[in-house]
Simulated scan of single mutants.
Amino acid sequence: MTTPNAHRPGVTIIPVHGKSPRIHDSAFIAPGCRIIGDVEIGADASIWYNCVLRADVSRIVIGQRSNIQDGSVVHCDPARPGDEEGSPCIIGDDVLVGHLAMVHGCIIEDRGFMGLGAIAMNKARIGSDAMLAAGAMLTEGKIMEPRSLWGGRPARFMRELNDAAIAGMRMGVAHYAENARHHGAAVNAAGLGAGEG
């Protein structure tokens, strides 16, 4: 069940322009997070400590079991003349977004990976089972094909990912989904009340 503007002490949830965050009851939202506007967060997703998701000018979607790790910022861009769709930020299912990432108006397909401190800009796309390396900057409109590894500033194709790398990313998703349950219980036990549901 997704609860509009659910009360989660320790988390700032703000409607803006008539749009309220919609957070699945099973999602873990850590204390210190700011969830603003037209944000949708799917089942068993996890948004970690001190993240900001600000959907004041377009929308943000976080898919099932995806995680946005500590200190990351997710934003979007509005429609403009010649760009009626604007740049919403759409993150698929089973996605890993590393600590301190800057995710702006881009698309991350199912099972994509964005490394620590990486930046993805408007209309860029991280393909399914693809990895944007730590510290990389994927510039506006760049498309990463599925199962590819890109790195550098600006990011460029480096190589195809092998099956072992793909399996490692899937293990990471499972780890974060499980760890979120433990953190939800710990937050509740600490009396902060910002855990699961």
Rank of each mutant, 00 (worst) to 15 (best):
I29M: 10
I29D: 03
I29A: 04
I29Q: 05
I29R: 06
I29N: 05
A30I: 07
P31C: 05
G32L: 11
G32R: 10
C33N: 03
C33A: 12
I35M: 12
I35P: 02
I36W: 09
I36K: 12
I36V: 15
G37H: 07
D38T: 01
E40H: 13
G42I: 05
A43R: 15
D44Q: 13
D44I: 01
A45K: 09
I47T: 01
I47D: 02
W48Y: 08
W48A: 04
W48Q: 06
Y49N: 11
N50T: 05
C51L: 11
C51G: 04
C51R: 06
V52D: 13
L53K: 11
L53N: 09
L53P: 10
R54C: 06
R54F: 03
A55L: 09
D56A: 03
V57C: 13
V57L: 11
S58I: 00
S58E: 09
S58A: 14
I62L: 14
G63E: 12
G63Y: 10
R65I: 03
R65P: 07
S66V: 11
I68C: 10
I68Y: 11
D70K: 09
D70F: 13
D70V: 12
G71L: 07
G71W: 03
G71T: 08
V74C: 12
C76V: 15
D77S: 15
D77Y: 02
P78V: 01
A79W: 00
P81R: 11
G82T: 07
D83L: 12
E85Q: 14
E85S: 14
E85D: 14
E85N: 14
G86V: 00
G86I: 00
S87F: 13
S87W: 06
C89N: 09
C89A: 07
I90A: 07
I90R: 13
I91L: 12
G92P: 11
G92T: 04
D93P: 05
D94F: 08
D94W: 03
V95F: 08
V95Q: 04
V95Y: 04
V97T: 04
V97N: 09
G98Q: 11
G98R: 13
G98C: 08
H99Q: 06
L100E: 06
A101W: 02
A101Y: 03
A101D: 02
M102D: 00
V103K: 08
V103G: 05
G105P: 04
G105K: 05
I107T: 15
E109G: 05
E109Q: 13
F113K: 00
M114L: 15
G115P: 06
G117E: 03
A118L: 03
A118T: 07
A118I: 03
I119C: 01
A120L: 14
A120W: 00
N122H: 06
N122P: 00
A124C: 15
R125F: 01
R125T: 13
I126S: 04
D129W: 07
A130K: 03
M131V: 13
A133K: 02
A133P: 03
A134E: 13
A134C: 08
G135K: 04
G135C: 05
A136M: 06
M137A: 15
L138D: 09
T139L: 14
E140C: 00
E140Q: 14
E140W: 00
E140N: 05
E140T: 12
G141W: 01
G141R: 10
K142C: 02
K142G: 01
I143V: 15
M144T: 02
M144H: 06
M144L: 02
M144R: 02
